[in-house]
């Protein structure tokens, strides 16, 4: 009885801590968005929907140990769901986003069940083919999905109590950030539950985990469905922010970029997903600014941002093999040791 009570207390403290995190995050994001202009608010919104996807992907790749090159395809499912429901069926924003999560999770069930049978590069190949093959559906059924040009919706309107002068971009940032915080809340609690421990056990040693009575395939399928739901929400938010869904918005590069984001940020931690989202948003615009600050020939100027981006990816992996979060943790450890050393010397 006491042990049960203890674990309930633990659960309650995790819940409280996650609520605190979300509240603090909401305040910080609201203040930040208050100080940003229209363009930067769009960047914030972009970072927020990237975070939603990366957080789910980091649970899949970093915690459950699977790989996916197909999350761009899952985002497309979420985006088309939102655009179809809002555009054709006149659904409200929140139910449409919820439907995006549900539909993408449903798509994730067969994909995840298939994925749980595959390992390493074979899984990479299957998910990659998913990312490449899915957008072709939009071309095949142009009457429903609008073909190459995709579908558009009207921009969301800020509620009237926020005042008439409330910018559209700020409202979009708020919507996307709210989605990101919900993902943060759900995943934080899941990772600190038995499910999170089961996933880690499966990642570390599948055979040992199955000998301990864990159903490996089921745990991996669940992780895939979970991350699919997050990708669906992220894709739905993208559709709301951009007010459209086209096949061209979800190329293979998107899936690869997402994987880059989770690895670069630091696999398996939600903080790493935050770093990853920040890098995915900021790095391209920084490299762009940098490239255009010199006067170069058009060929060089247009390609320099990509060259820098590639160099940064390579360099980061050589310098921080466990991602930015890993580097930060190491730095923190070193500082702590240094301080302990100083205290001891005194």
């Amino acid at each position: 009885m006491r042990r049960l009570g203890g674990s309930a207390a633990l659960r309650r403290s995790t819940l409280l801590r996650s609520l605190g995190l979300v509240a603090a995050g909401a305040v910080v994001l609201a203040l930040v968005s208050e100080g940003l202009g229209a363009y930067d608010n769009l960047e914030l919104a972009t970072g927020a929907y990237y975070f939603a996807v990366l957080a789910g992907l980091t649970v899949l790749v970093g915690v459950s140990g699977q790989i996916s090159l197909g999350h761009g395809g899952l985002m497309a499912v979420g985006a088309y769901t939102v655009v179809l429901l809002i555009g054709n069926e006149q659904w409200a924003l929140v139910p449409a986003l919820a439907a995006a999560v549900v539909v993408t999770s449903l798509v994730g069930i067969p994909v995840g069940a298939a994925a749980s049978r595959l390992r390493g590069p074979y899984l990479a190949g299957a998910t990659l083919a998913f990312a490449v093959g899915l957008p072709a559906l939009a071309d095949k059924f142009p009457a429903t999905f609008g073909g190459e040009n995709g579908l558009t919706i009207n921009p969301p309107t800020p509620p009237s109590f926020l005042g008439a002068s409330f910018e559209l971009e700020r409202w979009e940032a708020w919507i996307a950030c709210a989605g990101a915080l919900i993902v943060l809340f759900v995943l934080y609690n899941l990772l600190h539950s038995g499910f999170g421990r089961a996933l880690r056990a499966v990642r570390d040693d599948e055979i040992a985990a199955s000998l301990c009575g864990l159903r490996v395939g089921r745990a991996q399928t669940l992780a895939f469905i979970l991350s699919a739901g997050c990708a669906g929400l992220g894709g739905g938010l993208l559709a709301v922010v951009l007010q459209l869904a086209t096949p061209g918005a979800f190329p293979l590069e998107l899936s690869l970029t997402l994987l880059t984001g989770v690895v670069l940020g630091g696999l398996g931690s939600l903080a790493g997903a935050i770093w990853g989202a920040a890098v995915l948003v900021l790095l391209p615009s920084w490299t762009n600014d940098l490239a255009h600050s010199f006067s170069l020939s058009a060929n060089v100027e247009n390609n320099l941002p990509f060259a820098i981006y590639g160099l940064v990816l390579i360099g980061a992996m050589l310098v921080w093999p466990s991602g930015i979060q890993g580097g930060v943790r190491e730095l923190g450890g070193r500082l702590r040791r240094l301080r302990a050393h100083r205290v001891a010397e005194r």
Partner: peptide, 28 residues
Amino acid sequence: RVESAPPLNAVIVALGLYTLLVAVAGMI
């Protein structure tokens, strides 16, 4: 340099190299 690192690191290095080479080709 990444052979002993986690396997995904090599994937990211390869992706970085891809981006870099495509950009270099575009420049030249």
